[in-house]
Design a protein around this nucleic acid. Structure first.
Lengths: 193, 193, 193, 193
DNA sequence: GATGAATGAGCGTTCATTCAT
DNA sequence: GATGAATGAACGCTCATTCAT
């Protein structure tokens, strides 16, 4: 089976996809404002104008990235909304959320490190709502301020954990489990208090 | 005799300070790259060129901000380095760190939300080292991966907590205490395991 | 169908060339540093940004000018390198060099009058080497200091002659011949001593 | 006799002179436009504003330099104007001119390398007139174009010679004599033809 | 499905100059 | 005899965006 004849034969039809890939790569590394369309197009071997064939604006590229990569996470959140308020359910939510996060790691690295930009990308708001919704399903009834902090701390640690532990030696999957364990602890404590 | 009666009376001699203030305000709100020197100077009622009398570059303004506002935090970290590895000492460290943080809140908001920029501001590295140093003094001996996560999670929650809880109703000081409590819990758990 | 009827009919496709032309004109007249991109672009009826579509930097425009206009002169120098060290050959070299120079007159006017700038344009060095190489082929064996002065004086007079004689009345071609004669004299004297 | 007590005691009263010295140094090296008042004042250890106490404008500094350093050369030219049109007198003129030039070498290096700037410094014109006047006294009666070239070539070589021969090994005084010899030759030839 | 050519707005920075003190 | 503080104008350059082809 033959995939293509030679180099100049750029895999066709997937340019849109490749723009998204390269963009995610670059903005995760340098941030949104420091990543220019020139840079993206050069790394892709096309002209800047080509980007405008596939996307309406620079912001649009990033928004599309989010829409695509956030879906699995949205699914978890939507599913979470239907779970009963038992501890078991909460821990299961955390487990699924953790898995979904580790797939979307570069996206979250970008979000984590460019919150100022996120706020103006019209997409931050959506995300904040989703977080609030997810948080609600982790909170116990009659929540104290301290327990609220425990739960947000659990979520937050999951978001940030992967990047922070990057230069600690060890298997990524083990790290993920350690983070999940701490998060579960926090939510459990909140549930019992 | 009263020096400052009204607006047009430009308090002289404090321009350098005012540049720093306005800059912190703006970059905390919009991020570093989106804050232009034009904006800063306009809000101050001077020309862009005036900024260059007081600072060598845009980066220099921000670096000076850090150097100034980070000192109290550095002091806590330096003091922490001399404490014995007892649980009591660790909890005291957390307490002092929490206070220091709440004074430098705008600075930390900026850092939190512009991590991508921080990395290129030559000042991020310093900060990372300081965090690592502080973390080391919170960790138990023979630390497990999970306990390491607990401690970083404690620090991280303190950094982020104030902003995240901003739209929860309640007294800021109470919020700070709740965050401190959760952080203390995490460090205590790590210490005993 | 006629392509160029009047002004607003911007001849397209030749913008790059026109930038070079206008730039040479302006820097020959005012020098490199005093010629701004604004001035160039205004005279061309385009924006400054348009210049950056065709050239990477201001320096790049000038370097491209040199690369293009120096070629004929380089050719003479390369050809000179293959000639035998006879007087006849030397005089022939001078003749060809003189012709090549008069074609590139504006370029040499710029070089002559902006030597300080040339030194930092990374292109001056190249030129110096070429001059040294050409000079070597004019020098007799066992050269005395005086004869070395004669030969450089011959070259130098050819470079500067055209501009200096500008406000002496007379046919340019006659002037060129007069200059060539003096240069030939100098080289002949050096050869025989 | 004691001139000063220690370092911080800047030799007083000579600031004006020191500004001129530093300025000549810098513009000879970098050219007029690339030399900023900031640079001059920094190298002197004073503020930019101090320069304005001593001189009205940047141009004024350079003009004053010329007025001062050109005097010996003007003297030679004035003296030349009174000499008879004999060959002996002409050769004597050349000799004196050569000496005067070697004293004012840095000035001439600047003039040589910044002709574009000179033209706008209102001082170039004066110089051109002086050159024309000097040239007139070297030309024979009933001058041919070729002889005119010989004489300007003689002058020109004297101006440029010192810089061009800089990287030829040998005693500067010997170089000067070699240049003078060639110039004398040229003028002699013109005189006899 | 993409390019070539260009634009308008803005950026950080530097400059010569001014003037009250 | 000099400084501290500031200005206005300009500079080289980059950016996201447009549009005819």
């Amino acid at each position: 089976m033959v995939t293509g004849s030679s180099k100049p034969q750029q895999r066709r039809g997937d340019t849109r996809q490749r723009i998204q890939d390269v963009t995610l790569e670059l903005i995760a590394e340098q941030g949104y404002e420091k990543t220019s369309l020139r840079e993206i197009s050069e790394r892709l071997g096309v002209t800047k104008a080509a980007l405008y064939y596939h996307f309406k604006t620079k912001e649009d590229i990033v928004v599309s990235l989010f829409t695509d990569l956030m879906r699995p996470i949205d699914d978890v959140i939507a599913w979470a909304a239907e779970q009963p308020p038992t501890l078991e359910a909460k821990l299961e939510i955390l487990g699924h959320y953790s898995s979904a996060l580790s797939d979307a790691a570069p996206l979250f690295r970008f979000m984590q490190e460019n919150q100022a930009t996120m706020r103006e990308l019209s997409i931050g708001e959506n995300f904040k709502e989703r977080m609030t919704s997810l948080l609600d399903h982790l909170l116990p009834e009659d929540v104290t301020l301290t327990d609220r902090v425990r739960c947000f701390s659990a979520l937050f640690s999951m978001h940030a954990g992967m990047f922070v532990l990057r230069d600690v030696e060890g298997d990524p999957e083990e790290k993920r489990k350690a983070i999940l364990e701490v998060a579960s602890d926090l939510v459990t404590r909140a549930h019992h208090s």
